[in-house]
Every structure is written in C-alpha cells, then in structure tokens.
Design a protein around this nucleic acid. Structure first.
Lengths: 158, 158
DNA sequence: TGTTAGTTAGCATGACTTGCAAATTAGAAA
DNA sequence: TTTCTAATTTGCAAGTCATGCTAACTAACA
C-alpha cells in the first residue's frame, strides 16, 4: 500500500474526501505487518479517535481493497485479515499463537495451475499452517487459534 | 474419505452409533466432488430424510473432519465447503460460476515453506481463482460468486 | 460563507456456525 | 424381546463477522 501522503493524493484525484477517519486508517495501515482484523484496527483507532465507528473501518478497508491498496487475507478461521503489503507473497499462520507471517516462496518455481484443464487462473492464494519458530521451541500453547475441533474458531481477543 | 461401509465399521469400532442420519451423510458424501456446503447437503439430505436437522449435518461433518475423513475447504467467501477427497490436491474456484474444481499440481515441484524462517509447516492450503473453461468461452456470468466488491459474499442459494 | 455530494455513525439485518438441554434412539446387556 | 443407558438428534437461542440503510455531518469547492 502507498504512503498515507500518496493515498491522500489518490483520494483527492478520485474526488474522495480526505476525512480524519480515513487518514487515521491510512496511518494505522501503513507498513503494518500485523495482518490486523477490522476489529483490532477499530480498537486501536478508537484510542486515537474515540467514537469512530466500526462501520467506518469496514467501509474504508473495503474501499482500499477495491482500490488494490490493500489485500484481503482469509486464513480460514475467524475474521478477514488486511494486508497492506501488495507484493506477491504468501502467508504462514501459526496454529499455536495465531500469528501471521509473510512468506516469500518466489524462490521456488512459480505456481502454475494446470492450464491444460482450461482454467484461467487470475489469483493464487496460499496459506501455510504450522508452528512458528518461537512456538516451536519452548512454550507451547498461547492464544491457540483452534482449527481442527470445529469448522470455525471465531475466538475474540477478549 | 472411505466408503460408507468402511466408515460404518470405523464408527462401530469407536463406539459411535450408526444412526440413519450418519449413514445418509456417508452416502451423500461418498465420491462427492461437488464440494458441498453444509446447507446444500442439508437440502439434499432433507429430501431423503425429511426432518433431519441442519444441526446434525454440521455435527456429523465436524466429526468426520476430526476423524480426517473429510477436508474443510475455505474458499474465502460464503460457507465452508466439505471435500471427501483426502488426497493431496488443491482447489480452483471459478469467480464466474462459483464452481470448485480439484486441481493437482503435484506435477509441479512441491511447495515448501521457507524452513529457513524457522516455520514448521504442517499444512498448505492453495486456492486458485479465475474462470473455468466453460465460463472462459461463451456465456459470461452465471451464479457469480462475488468477491471483489465486499469482504464477504455470503449469498444463499435462496 | 454557503452549498452539496460524499461520509460517518448506529442500528438493524443477514449469513454461517455453535452452544445447550430436552427428547430420542442405537446398541449392548439381561 | 425387553430394558437400560450413553450417544445422538433436534430445535432454538446465541455468537461472530460483515453489510444494508439512512439521518446527521462535513470536506472541499465556488
């Protein structure tokens, strides 16, 4: 995703208003590698701008995604994650602590769908699951992002 | 997933009851390549067994998944899909008609997460998106499994 | 400063899934 | 075959995540 300043420019060009809410989100997202959910962004945003609406967070995130400034990451359980890193990369989800890390497998031969099957692939989503380095050694469970038990694990940070 | 007969055996061995509801689902899932949702299975099951509960469908699907007889497929939008095909394979989702096809990219070099990063990868989920052969040639939109517009596209068959 | 189209806030609603408790029932024992 | 009991099924309430809708608000331009 572009810098807050650049985004401001883009918005202006598109006749979109540069509201304080949007600017705040631009800042919160810039260089953010935590793959936040709308909820977590809402919590952080609320501290700097009490009263901001979760609806607005969703709204703005949706707009940014549509403008290709933001990537939606679906790790299968819980809420959608947002990733300002638009470069081609994949994600690793730690089943133990729930953390999401960017992974770059461009080193490996590019993935290609069997075009022989007549599919026109436009997008490839890859999600690795396992245990991250920290969880792998030493302390076991932490947040525990369940997956196997149920179909869903919509656990809140609570 | 195993055959309904084999599953019956497994269930018996585990002291699990072989109810008509379960047997019906075993049959509906066996060799089912449609990647159904719990809802769609419910609709089909209801015809053969009016009064069966959607809750039971979810319950049984969850059990089978836990028993590794069934794979949960999350294509990002809408409901979870269930896939009795437990062999290593990936999925292609047609953004036009919403169909899900199994894809086998074992021919391509296996995916490997950067173990250098200290990640212990246990599972890799790959979802290809694009247009399937049929949609690619001729008729455009059909069911239209939206994705880009919003974060979610929980459209029901209704 | 006034105008207005684009935004925000809040609440209602919708889609999907799970929790819970009462009613049933498969399967083993008598 | 009847009895017994723990496993299941149901049905509904509740929970999570996300979107629709609209009145109130405001950034941005004349």
């Amino acid at each position: 995703m572009r810098t807050p300043t650049e985004l401001a420019q883009v918005f202006r060009e598109k006749q979109l208003k540069l509201t304080p809410q949007r600017q705040l989100l631009f800042n919160l997202l810039h260089d953010n590698e935590s793959h936040p959910t709308a909820e977590s962004l809402f919590e952080i945003a609320s501290k700097q701008m009490p009263g901001i609406s979760l609806r607005t967070i969703y709204q703005t995130l949706g707009e940014l995604a549509e403008m290709k400034e933001l990537q939606l990451v679906d790790i299968g359980n819980g809420a959608t994650r947002f990733d300002p890193n638009m470069s081609e990369h994949q994600h690793f989800v730690c089943d133990s602590c729930g953390a999401i890390h960017d992974v770059d497998i461009t080193s490996a031969p590019k993935l290609r769908a069997g075009s022989a099957d007549g599919f026109a692939v436009e997008e490839i989503g890859v999600v690795f699951r396992g245990r991250c380095g920290r969880c792998n050694q030493g302390d076991q469970s932490r947040q525990t992002t369940k997956r196997s038990p149920g179909l869903q694990a919509k656990n809140k940070a609570s």
